[in-house]
Design a protein around this nucleic acid. Sequence first.
DNA 1: ACCACCATGTAAACGGTTACATGATTAC
DNA 2: GTAATCATGTAACCGTTTACATGGTGGT
Lengths: 191, 191
Amino acid sequence: MDVKTLCLGVLTEGDKTGYEIKRCFEDAFSHFFGAGFGSIYPALAGLSRAGLVSCRSVEQDKRPDKKVYSLTAAGHRLLVEELMATPPRHKVRSEFLVLIYFAHLLPPERLAWIMDQMIARWRQAVADIETCTTAAEGLAMTPGMRFAAGYGRAMLGAALAYVREHQAELVGAVAEIAAPATPEPLPLAGD
Amino acid sequence: MDVKTLCLGVLTEGDKTGYEIKRCFEDAFSHFFGAGFGSIYPALAGLSRAGLVSCRSVEQDKRPDKKVYSLTAAGHRLLVEELMATPPRHKVRSEFLVLIYFAHLLPPERLAWIMDQMIARWRQAVADIETCTTAAEGLAMTPGMRFAAGYGRAMLGAALAYVREHQAELVGAVAEIAAPATPEPLPLAGD
DNA sequence: ACCACCATGTAAACGGTTACATGATTAC
DNA sequence: GTAATCATGTAACCGTTTACATGGTGGT
């Protein structure tokens, strides 16, 4: 599954410009799928060439023209086909956890800073989901959207809880390794 | 942060062959970082060229020679530098959640199958973490490794709990959308 | 017989990120 | 005046994934 499929997907909710699609991605998918202009615009161009979306230019005063994309019947069909054929993968790529894994190679202050960063970011992410769901309240919100939002909240909550509970423990343990209670000089300096 | 850095990282635990490094990745990092032979072997070759790891060939009987890599002093220094310079990112890329988000476009049976798949996979992942941590019990397990394993367990537990609790709700809501006109009253309908 | 494990590598394809390029409007 | 928003696109770069290529051992 690539950005093209996601574009077809958001267009089922109504016609949109490339710019608006990016907004959609940020609001709805940001915690489980990322995409920037550099992948959205080429994707849209490709879909248009393939007849899976149609495109009309809309003039605006005091702004450049915008291109509004609509899903075609063929596009809708392909979307469903692709969704049916997509194996349910779920990958995490976390530099944060790599850093944690090698915590003993870092100064304790750096480690504490890293965890504070993540806590702050996750807090923000929870707030963003809350904002989006209350903003979409009353509007057409499918069961899937609700489920995905709830999943995001649950995961972020669990992550925050785990880090908060084990943060002090980890920093303490690493500090002990870095500066052991024994004043014995370690021979591991190695140059 | 790329595969090269991770290779340097696992080599701090002791000398290893490319094959063993891949095993390490699977055991320790699989729930937050992925890498296959196709990225590990070229990474090791590059590190060797740059003098960040050294390499010695070991003959084996009845097996092809293996190349055992060791971290050099320069490699260790670069690793720490890289870890210090790495911003703590944490990205999820989930085709599963995309599928869920567009649940209303899928047949309810498919949706149920998708969730069953994820539940099974996550259960397996929990079991794998348990196996690895008990296997490494008593051995050198750094605080960071324990933290990362615990984090994995916590996240998988939360994911499983959330999906289990909201699975029926979602499938039910989607089934209603898929077949809205059924005048058939539900068995427990009190509304 | 066939599959999994051990063991190493290459090369092409694919897709995403980042930087570049342009330019007007509105709000602080 | 400086930043953010609206609005579109290209091109180089980077790294991963996947498929290919080889080959002996050990288990069901």
